[in-house]
């Protein structure tokens, strides 16, 4: 139960941050990405603020024997640069630049009740599902 409350509160705080920083607003995001136009550097400060906190806080947290409410830390295990990583990130960036939504703000923007959010999220979920087909095909070829 404590884990569920913790997850909810972390999400809540994350959401307030997305709202306050206006990261939830595609127009604001696109103005940040539009370096050749009337550039709005605000979102660089969002990134800076967020990474400042995680950079300082993660070190002592990860030195703890275990998280407060769980048996172990669940961290990514992959270390190597792969074609999937780079290709996937490149594709994500194109979609981000087209609309101005990345996954967190897209979900959080449901708070504004716009139909565009629903269309985008439906497509995002379909795209996530399509990505699951990629490893299966690769495994088949190499087997």
């Amino acid at each position: 139960m404590a884990r569920l409350i913790a997850a909810f509160l972390a999400g809540l705080l994350f959401g307030v941050g997305l709202g306050l920083s206006q990261m939830v607003n595609p127009a604001k995001v696109l103005a940040f990405l539009d370096v050749a136009g009337d550039w709005d550097p605000s979102l660089a400060l969002v990134m800076l603020g967020a990474v400042l906190v995680t950079f300082v806080a993660f070190r002592p947290i990860l030195r703890l024997p275990q998280p407060v409410f769980a048996g172990k830390f669940s961290l990514p295990t992959l270390k190597s640069l792969t074609a999937r990583l780079i290709l996937g990130s490149a594709i994500f960036g194109v979609g981000w630049g087209l609309v101005g939504f990345c996954p967190g703000p897209a979900i959080a923007s449901l708070a504004y009740g716009l139909p565009e959010t629903l269309v985008f999220l439906a497509a995002l979920i379909a795209g996530s599902w399509l990505a699951k087909l990629v490893p299966a095909a690769t495994v088949k070829q190499s087997a």
Binding site: L87, A90, I91, F92, G95, W96, C102, P103, F120, G127
Partner: peptide, 12 residues
């Protein structure tokens, strides 16, 4: 955009 973001983030 949604398809690219969903596909790309999961692949990456």
């Amino acid at each position: 955009g949604g398809l690219l973001v969903g596909f790309g983030t999961r692949l990456g």
